[in-house]
Every structure is written in C-alpha cells, then in structure tokens.
Design a protein around this nucleic acid. Structure first.
Length: 427
RNA sequence: GGAGAGAUGGCUGAGCGGUUGAAAGCGCCUGACUCGAAAUCAGGUAGAGGGUUUGCGCCCUCUCGUGGGUUCAAAUCCCACUCUCUCCGCCA
C-alpha cells in the first residue's frame, strides 16, 4: 500500500499517478473522507479513554483509603459504555480505511513512460541471433507430441483443459531446467535457495498484493481458507512479514522453485494451444529485500540474472519495458524478458522483473532497523528466473531439427545424464 | 484426531486484578577511559495511532498471540480461535 501521508498531502498527485495505471481516482476521495471521520472519532474516543483511566486510578486510591466510591464507579461505567459505542463505530471506519488503502495500486516510478495498455510497452533491448531454419519450424506442442514427451489429452482427462502431462525425457528436461536455474542463481548470482509451502494463507496473499483485489484469479481451498501458490513471490516475500530486519542483513536474496497455480479466469481463448498458458506450471523465482536507496540498482541486477539464464541457454530474447498501463497493481517499474518463438516468429514473455519499492513492505510490514536505530520499510523486488514451462517450449522450438528431434542445450546436458539430443527413440 | 504445557519488547525471560508499557540479562546506540580497540563504568534504547510545535520536542490513546467477555480498573480472571512444544494415535 501507499504511504497514507502521501495521499493526505498530495491527493491530486496520487490521483494522477494511479490514473496512469487505469485505476479509479475516486478511491482517493473515499480514502480522504474516511480518514477524516476516523481521525475525529479517534480523538474523541481517546479523550474518553483518558478520562476512564484517570478516574479508575482515582478509585483505586480511594479504595485503599477505604472511602466510598460508588458514585465515581457509576460515572466511569457510563463513560465505559460510551467508549464501547465509539469503538464499534471506529472499528467500522478502520476496516473501511484499510480496505480502501489495500485497493489503491502502487504508483509508477517517474522513469516509466505513459501508456494505456500492453500495446504501448517498448522493446529496449534485443539479444542473440535468431536461427535461420532451412525447414518450417514447428510449434512446440507438435514437436512434443511427436516425441511423446508432453501429453495434452491425458492432462485434460486427469484435470481438465490447460493441464498437461510431461513424460519421459520431457519430465526429465523439466527437472533439469529447474535444477540448472536454481544452481545458477545460487552459485553465480549469490541467492539462497528456499523451498516454501505451496498452500498459502490469506494474510500472506494480502501482503504481496494478490488480495483483496484478485481473489478470482486464485485457486482456493474452502475448508482451510488457503490459496494455491500463484507464484513463489508470495511465500518467499512473506517469509519476512511482520519482521524487523537488521540493516546488516540487507540485501537478502532468495531463489525458490515452486509450482504455480492460476485460474486464468480472464484468459479464455488466449494461447489455447501448447504450454504457454496453463493452470499449473513450474517457475524459479528470485526475490530481493533491499535498502530503499539501492533498489533501482538491484532491479538492474535482478534483470541481468534473469537474462543470464537466457544467454547461457543461447535463447534469443528481447527486453520489454512496461508502460504505466501494463505495470499491474503492485509494481512501480517492470521489465519483461521475452524469448523468441520461431514457430510464431514472435517474442513471448518468459520472465517478469519488478521493483515494488515499499508497496509490498508496507502491506506485509517488513522493516529494517538502520545503524542509527531508525526504522524503515525495505524495498522488495522479484523476477522469474525463469518460467520453466515456457523455457521448455522455447528450447523445443529453437533447438528443433528437421527430423523432429531436439538438441539439448550444452549447459543442460550434465543435468540430463550427458544426453545430447531428444529423439523419438530415446524419449 | 486425543491429552497436556505454552505464546510478553530486536532476542532471552520475570510479572499472574490498581503509578507495569512492563524487572533482569543479552544486543544495539551515546559518553567516559584508550593512540585505537577490547574490557570496565555511566546513560539511553518497543511499536502503532492521534494531538501540538517552524523544528528539537512535548502530550494523549492503544498494543503483552488474535478476537470477544467480566470489572470502576485486565499482560494478569473467563470464553473462543490461531500457532508452538511434549506425549498418544494415524500416516508419505
């Protein structure tokens, strides 16, 4: 959430900023209204409580002197009932105050360009040589089905549309990719590996900004009120919810593999074929907790860590900078690495790297104590490094051969028992 | 699932109806000593909300797992819930 003081002091600025994200500026007016009412009531109630406290102490003293206190008691009782009334009203205001605050999106970083939606994102970088095929490159789902390493039909049978089954070397390649990515980020980029729970409580979902606004996008278990992990960002960022870290601990860098579960509620008809958009996929995610003044530097590093995976796998990619309208609810600035897909001659999102600044830290109450004793909110960042399923798709397409086999990228071979190629025979 | 024990500040841990927002220790900060450091000594050190002040600050309220209740008054008594630990049961 935003700093309430920023909204109070510069409401017009905040309105303007959230409108760039296509959010409703009337949220700010509602906030200010509730804020005023709440403050008045707090003031009044605090005065009453003060009175109760003083008189109660008085009673204690008189009682010690064995004096009559029945009159005083009656007075305090009256005050107490008034307090109770106020508290009921106050808790309603507090709830609304909090709810509005939780529904106001983060404001964009000044360096982010204005744009209405994804069509106005800009490509800021391109890397790698797109391969010159001497045959018509097939889409990944055809390659995979021909090799019998992905089974869409049976995925649908077991679970439904947008689920698939990995088989044989397909399953092994998935595992290889996960290990390869984690090892890279740990050994070369200095992250600590985390393996978090996949079922997550409500408080954590609020902490990183999935709730209250996006409940429809998540799988939920009714009996226990738990959500299926939509991204490791949630459990890993919430690792330090309600904690005060020490300045010496920062920066903290975590990398985690998790399965990710998404209902894709609004995605009917999009990317229906293949493994690009599915309900369950694997992802390796990097998360950083950093000092505010260093967070932009950390975004650059994080982004480079994600790109490094693509470079090492020699997958051509481009980097897209998101415009204000496509930042999403929580990000202040965001870059998406996109991998080249030969069958469509298009670049497809394979990672997303964001700086949330103090937006998540305020929600999740993650602070650090500076050397001088003062308290500050940390800045949080995260980025996929990378989405595993999409990496698999990219490898299948970019490394496919005319005979239908797929060459295994050199750096992955040690994770595949030295295997160099997936063929119909060995798959 | 059953039985029991517990949850207090950055950490450990005392308090079990009325100057207790909380002893003590650790940690941290400041000062003295030192060329410097360590050790020692002295002092300081919870968070949130609100008011006031140009500012340093000062004042008020709330918070001892969470939510309710009893009482003039609750960290302290009662109830519910959550979590942790121990034992039993079940189980990959």
């Amino acid at each position: 959430m935003l700093d309430p003081n920023l909204i109070r002091e510069k409401p017009d600025f905040v309105k303007e900023q959230i409108q760039k994200k296509n959010a409703d500026p009337s949220l700010i007016d509602r906030f200010l209204e509730v804020d005023v009412k709440r403050k008045e009531l707090v003031k009044e109630t605090d005065m009453l409580r003060h009175e109760r406290k003083t008189l109660s102490q008085e009673i204690g003293k008189l009682l010690a002197q064995k004096k009559d206190v029945s009159e005083l008691k009656a007075r305090v009782k009256e005050i107490a009932s008034k307090i109770k009334e106020n508290e009921k009203m106050l808790s309603r205001f507090e709830e609304e105050y909090r709810d509005i605050l939780l529904r106001i999106p983060n404001i964009p970083d000044p360096s982010v360009h204005y744009g209405k939606d994804e069509s106005e994102n800009i490509v800021v970088k391109r890397w790698g040589d797109v391969r010159d095929f001497d045959f018509e490159p097939k889409p990944h789902w055809e390659i995979a089905e021909n090799l019998d390493i992905i089974d869409f039909k049976r995925g649908a049978k077991i679970s439904g549309a947008r689920f698939y089954v990995l088989k044989g070397l397909g399953a092994k390649l998935e595992r290889a990719l996960i290990s390869f990515m984690i090892d890279l980020h740990v050994a070369k980029h200095g992250y600590r590996e985390i393996f978090p729970p996949f079922l997550i409580n409500r408080a954590s979902m609020i902490g990183t900004g999935q709730l209250p606004k996006f409940e429809e996008d998540m799988y939920h278990t009714d009996k226990d009120d738990l959500f299926l992990d939509p991204t490791a960002e949630v459990p890993v960022t919430n690792l330090h919810r309600d904690e005060i870290l020490s300045e010496d601990d920062l920066p903290i860098k975590y990398v985690a593999y998790t399965a990710c579960f998404r209902r894709e509620a609004g995605a009917a008809g999009r990317d229906t074929r293949g493994i690009i958009r599915v309900h369950q996929f694997n992802k390796v995610e990097m998360v950083r907790f950093v000092k505010p003044e260093e967070s932009m530097k950390h975004l650059e590093e994080l982004l480079d860590n994600a790109e490094d995976v693509l470079r090492i796998l020699n997958l051509p990619y481009q980097l897209k900078k998101m415009c204000t309208g496509d930042l999403g609810f929580t990000a202040a600035i965001k870059f998406d690495p996109e991998v080249y897909m030969p069958s469509q001659d298009k670049y497809v999102e394979i990672s997303s790297c964001s700086n949330f600044k103090d937006f998540q830290a305020r929600r999740a109450n993650i602070r650090y104590r500076a050397k001088d004793g003062s308290l500050h909110y940390v800045h949080t960042l995260n980025g996929s490094g990378l989405a595993v399923g999409r990496t698999m798709a990219a490898i299948l397409e970019n490394y496919q051969e005319k005979d239908g086999s797929v060459v295994i990228p050199e750096p992955l071979r040690e994770y595949m028992g030295g295997l160099e190629r997936i063929t119909k025979e060995n798959a």
